[in-house]
C-alpha cells in the first residue's frame, strides 16, 4: 500500500483509453506536459519523462504495475538524485459520464526535495491534460512553470 502524501483528482469528459494514452503516449504528453513520457509500459520496464527527440531525461523510474486503461504505478526520481525516489499511482475510473483520474504521489524519502516540486507541478499538469482532452488545447505549461522562478528582484528590475 502506497504511503500517499498527495492525492490529486480531476474529472475529465473523455474515455479511460484516451486518458491512459494521455499519460503514456509521448505525442500527447509533449502537448500538455511539455516533455515525452517514454516506455513500453510493461511491468518491470524503465520509463522516463524526457525532452523530445532523444533528449535528456527529467524524471526516470520503473514501471511497478501496468493495467491499461485502469492503473499504472511508477517509481519517480530526478536522474541527478535517484536516492530521492518516490512512487506515483495513476488510477483511472469512470463516474457517470466522466473519467476520474487520481494521481497518488507518495513514499517520499524524509526531507525529499522532489516532494516540494510535485505540489506545484501536478495541479498544472492535470489542468493542462484536462484542457487538452476536453478542448483539444493544452495550457502553455512551460510558461506557467517559469512563474515559480519569477522573483521579487525581477519585479524591481
Amino acid at each position: 500500500m502506497t504511503n500517499a502524501d498527495f492525492i490529486y483528482t480531476t474529472y475529465i469528459k473523455s474515455t479511460p483509453e484516451k486518458v491512459w494514452a494521455a499519460i503514456t503516449n509521448p505525442e500527447f504528453t509533449r502537448q500538455y506536459w511539455g516533455h515525452d513520457n517514454i516506455s513500453d509500459w510493461k511491468k518491470g520496464s524503465d520509463w522516463k519523462h524526457a525532452d523530445g527527440k532523444g533528449g535528456s531525461a527529467r524524471i526516470i523510474g520503473k514501471v511497478l504495475e501496468s493495467n491499461p486503461p485502469k492503473r499504472l504505478v511508477l517509481t519517480w526520481a530526478d536522474p541527478a538524485d535517484t536516492a530521492d525516489d518516490s512512487k506515483v499511482t495513476f488510477e483511472i475510473d469512470t463516474v457517470q459520464d466522466l473519467v476520474r483520474l487520481n494521481v497518488i504521489h507518495g513514499d517520499f524519502k524524509p526531507g525529499s526535495v522532489m516532494a516540494t516540486k510535485v505540489v506545484i507541478g501536478w495541479p498544472l499538469v492535470l489542468s493542462s491534460m484536462k484542457s487538452l482532452l476536453e478542448t483539444g488545447k493544452a495550457i502553455d505549461i512551460m510558461a506557467l512553470k517559469q512563474c515559480g522562478s519569477a522573483t521579487v528582484k525581477e519585479t524591481a528590475a
Binding site: T9, P123, S127, A143, G148, A150, V152, T155
Partner: peptide, 27 residues
C-alpha cells in the same frame, strides 16, 4: 486537491500575465 483552483486560475489569467501576477504576489 488544488486542481479545480488551478483551473480557475488558468481560465482568467492569460499566459503573458502570469509572470507579472506571480511577481506581484511574491513582492
Amino acid at each position: 486537491n488544488p486542481v479545480p483552483i488551478n483551473e480557475i486560475y488558468t481560465r482568467w489569467i492569460g499566459k503573458f500575465e502570469r509572470k507579472q501576477v506571480q511577481a506581484l504576489h511574491n513582492l
